[in-house]
């Protein structure tokens, strides 16, 4: 079971702002999904090595060579807000305030 309190905590970690309505719905839906995925407990995996990569590839490396960077116009083309060739963001406020 995932309660609304937990949903809020997760939303915080994920930088999501949820409405009361969404928080309620997600508590129910996430609980259902988590119940479903707990099906996995039926399988014995004690001695099983986890798989992070399905392909037998290792050591993919590039040479330390510099190539041209992106034009500054293109870097900033999609920027919601810019100033002096930098991306501007709103003030970072203390949580206490």
């Amino acid at each position: 079971m995932i309660n609304e309190e937990e949903v809020k905590k997760i939303a915080d970690l994920a930088s999501l702002k949820l409405s009361e309505e969404e928080t309620k719905t997600f508590a129910k839906q996430l609980s259902d999904i988590v119940d479903y995925v707990e099906k996995l407990d039926e399988l014995d995996t004690d001695d099983i090595v986890p798989t992070a990569y399905t392909i037998p590839v290792k050591n993919v490396l590039r040479k330390d060579e510099v190539e041209e960077s992106l034009d500054i116009e293109k870097v900033l083309k999609n920027a919601p807000e810019e100033l002096d060739n930098q991306f501007r963001v709103p003030k970072i406020m203390d949580e206490d305030n």
Partner: peptide, 20 residues
């Protein structure tokens, strides 16, 4: 997160509000 590209919520008071 609204910093480099894509949507950015307007009128956010601070960075964290802008993100969320």
């Amino acid at each position: 997160d609204g910093v480099r590209y894509g949507l950015r919520a307007e009128d956010a008071n601070n960075l964290n509000d802008m993100f969320t």
